[in-house]
Design a protein around this nucleic acid. Structure first.
Length: 557
RNA sequence: GCACCCAUAGCUCAACAGGAUAGAGCAACACCCUUCUAAGGUGAAGGUUGGGGGUUCGAGUCCCUCUGGGUGCACCA
């Protein structure tokens, strides 16, 4: 909570307007108007007076040595503080570390289960799927920062035609590698269009797998293992990890689907249709289709994906976690509503869902079949190559480790920058832009600060905050002080783009300060020490925000 | 056809729970490196917030409607 807001609220509170009522209405105006503003319009109804009169009344009794001026502008009461008071107030109460912020907000020790990505384990992920992992990974980091224990899950869809197809297509290729699978998958799908035998054999495989044929299960496991290893290796390179991989097949082989089906049979909503399949009648539920019905078994009463997903969702709901979050593509919106309705029918609480829209290319949608995709791996390579070239030009020698930090940062930033509900328009130029609104901008300025701090061979741990009073210093201090609220806002909205906006604004304020004021070459010792302290805190705020986005910093760039 | 999401500068995005004169970056134009990293800074230019109604003291933000894009509409996973 903004300390200046609290100060104003305490200053103004009276019998009619409690400090809570005032706090609710306070906002930050543009810098030329003041530091804190109170719009008085909402009080007009309850107090039966005009907003302007209320503002005048409130302003009348204010006599505070820390205020420079209080102005009533058409019902907005604007407060301008003495800069040294702002510096003192905000910096003395500043917290940027996880421990303090977690404690302050009382979230320590709670548990959140987050399921994400869970893509078909049949090929290398494209950047559309990566959006799922990137959003979720940032949320995991935010929860962890706020003191939560995180439990990150991946639901492996190891049952299904897509795996059976790969098993069929690779049966004569004992040493098939992950990178070959995408093309093999595309080819076999093409071939199956004209050759009906393929489909028939594939379904035989699937049937054997489901009914427990050990040999076929081993073949499925081999392919799935190659896929999961291949996919997680890529995500691992980006620092994205899971705690647990849950296999869909478990719900079949351990007969959990049968047990849940028995429970569903207790409900009048479940019926057997004319073909002998079990169907949930979901009419009357808030589901965005005309006649919502969820078919959960085949006519031989074996499970369809929906039933297995209900079983899995039940497990997650009953895991004991305080919160249960699922990051899911917008294509699954209606389907998720259906699973949620089924869960409620069983007396369980559905997950909280974060939907994201797809990544589009300049000439339209991605299409695996047309080969019109940008693979995550290719994006990673391009980003690293471009940043390494830039490093080479600047430093005279290449540095792959640093190039990866910079390149992967740009990759993550370009995708996380967009609010999840909006489509990301991917084009190489924007994504690999290392100037302006990009992660590189923040990493670069972070490195600038580190360079100064290395030369600052004096103690700056106990500064006199009150010597910081220039507009650039105050603007920077205010921005740093927002850090805690920004993390909480990201947490509340489950939206990492709040972090990208913040780190860019914060860095801009630093860069403006940096170009107008000198730190090491300042004559006045007090100012020199206070400024060094300030840039150290700036660096900490930049680093922490970038880390919450899954982006690393470098000491020099 | 029905349902949900989105539409803001030439392009890509902001605008904290409706608040004051809608902000950045990229591109294009003009400046600033003998001073702590120019992957930087400054200036000028760029807008009827897709169209039309409504609610409100106040609407990019809420409601209705139209247009355009994204997504989905039982027996795939």
């Amino acid at each position: 909570m903004n300390k200046l807001y609290q100060y104003v609220a305490n200053l103004l509170a009276n019998e009619q307007l409690t400090s809570e009522m005032i706090l609710e209405n306070l906002e930050t105006p543009s810098a030329d108007k003041g530091d804190v503003a109170l719009p008085c319009f909402k009080f007009a109804k309850t107090l039966h007076t005009s907003p302007i009169a209320i503002a005048n009344e409130l302003a009348k009794n204010i006599n505070d040595e820390n205020l420079l001026k209080v102005e009533n502008v058409n019902g907005f009461l604007n407060f301008t503080f003495k800069p040294e008071f702002i510096a003192q107030t905000l910096l003395s109460s500043l917290a940027l570390d996880s421990e303090t912020i977690a404690k302050r907000n009382g979230m320590q020790g709670k548990t959140v289960l987050i399921e994400h990505t869970s893509i078909n384990p049949n090929a290398s992920p494209h950047i559309g799927r990566a959006r799922n992992a990137l959003i979720a990974d940032s949320l995991v980091r935010v929860f962890r920062f706020l003191g939560w224990k995180t439990d990150v899950h991946y639901f492996v869809n190891d049952v299904g035609k897509q795996i059976a197809m790969l098993v069929y297509a690779t049966k004569d290729k004992p040493n098939v590698t992950f990178n070959e699978l995408l093309q093999i998958y595309i080819d076999i799908n093409e071939k199956a269009k004209t050759d009906a035998e393929i489909e028939k054999t594939v379904f035989e495989y699937l049937h054997k797998f489901e009914s427990g044929d050990k040999k076929v299960i081993a073949e499925f496991e081999k392919i799935v293992s190659i896929c999961i290893k291949g996919q997680t290796a890529i995500f691992d390179e980006l620092g994205i990890k899971w705690d647990k991989f849950d296999y869909e097949s478990k719900y079949i082989h351990q007969h959990i689907t049968d047990k849940v089906l028995e429970r569903l049979k207790q409900s009048p909503k479940l019926f057997e249709d004319k073909d002998g399949r079990y169907v949930l009648d979901q009419r009357g539920e808030d589901i965005g289709i005309e006649e919502p019905m969820l078919v959960i078994t085949r006519n031989d009463k074996t499970s369809l994906y929906a039933l297995r997903d209900i079983c899995y969702s039940l497990d997650k709901a009953n895991s004991g976690a305080d919160r249960n979050i699922l990051v899911l593509g917008e294509d699954q919106k209606v389907y998720f509503q259906q699973i949620s309705a089924a869960l409620r029918l069983l007396g369980a609480k559905p997950a909280e869902v974060v939907h994201y829209s797809f990544v589009l290319l300049p000439d339209g949608k991605m299409s695996t079949r047309q080969g019109k995709v940008v693979l995550l791996e290719d994006f990673m390579k391009e980003a690293t190559a471009k940043s390494n070239t830039a490093i080479q030009e600047k430093r005279g020698e290449s540095d792959i480790e640093k190039a990866k930090i910079v390149g992967y940062g740009a990759l993550k930033y370009s995708i996380l920058k967009c609010s999840p509900e909006k489509n990301v328009l991917f084009d190489w130029n924007t994504a690999l832009n290392f100037n302006g609104d990009s992660s590189v901008y923040s990493q670069y300025n972070y490195a600038r600060i580190q360079s100064i701090l290395q030369k600052a061979n004096y103690d700056y741990s106990k500064p006199n905050f009150q010597v910081l009073k220039s507009p650039e210093e105050i603007a920077l201090i205010k921005e740093i002080a927002r850090f805690e609220d920004i993390v909480l806002s990201t947490y509340r909205n489950l939206n990492p783009s709040i972090l990208t906006n913040y780190v860019y604004n914060l860095t801009t304020k630093f860069s403006q300060f940096y170009t107008t004021h000198s730190i090491l070459n300042t004559e006045n010792e007090d100012i020199k020490i206070a400024r060094t302290y300030l840039i150290n805190k700036t660096a900490e705020a930049i680093k922490n925000t970038l880390n919450l986005l899954g982006i690393d910093t470098v000491q020099s760039l």
